[in-house]
């Protein structure tokens, strides 16, 4: 039986302190295509192992964050022959410069590909500011 050896040395923290995830799991950056149509910004992300229940898309201020959790698969009674890829979660964030209609954002997952449609907001109406003589 092998016991995993843990580092006993103290690790200096970087300043400013980086935020870490609570789960000690591998995190990957999904490969992404983004294209712009007349009405929307469309994002496609390759996230194999993710379905509609395990993916999370948030838009806070102008930061769009994609998170996908992959349930680790265990093969009991098998031993690893060879492994070219490893499993892990997905995480990536983009700053969205376009004005987005927040209430109409749509996201779907099909065959491990996340699609997010960010419809463009109607151009804000120019507001005339009345100037009073003072």
């Amino acid at each position: 039986m092998t016991v995993e050896k843990k580092e006993v040395q103290k690790q200096p923290a970087s300043t400013p302190v980086e935020t870490e995830r609570t789960k000690l799991r591998r995190v990957f950056v999904p490969k992404v295509d983004i294209y712009e149509t007349k009405e929307a910004l469309v994002l496609l992300a390759d996230m194999p192992g993710v379905d509609e229940k395990s993916v999370d898309v948030t838009l806070e201020k102008d930061i769009l964050t994609l998170r996908g959790v992959v349930a680790p698969r265990e093969y009991k009674g098998y031993s690893a022959g060879f492994a070219e890829y490893r499993e892990g979660d997905y995480e990536r964030a983009f700053s969205v410069s376009e004005e987005v209609a927040r209430d109409r954002i749509g996201a779907s997952v099909k065959n491990g590909v996340l699609k997010v449609v960010l419809p463009k907001a109607e151009p804000a109406k120019a507001k005339k500011i009345a100037i009073t003589a003072g």
Binding site: L44, P48, R73, Y75
Partner: peptide, 23 residues
């Protein structure tokens, strides 16, 4: 695609990450 292989005496299990493919 990248492939992982799991083996025992009875069978082999091969897995591959292939997102967005028409089966």
């Amino acid at each position: 695609p990248l492939i992982n292989v799991w083996v025992n005496n009875e069978e082999v299990k091969l897995t591959a990450e292939l997102p967005g493919i028409d089966p």
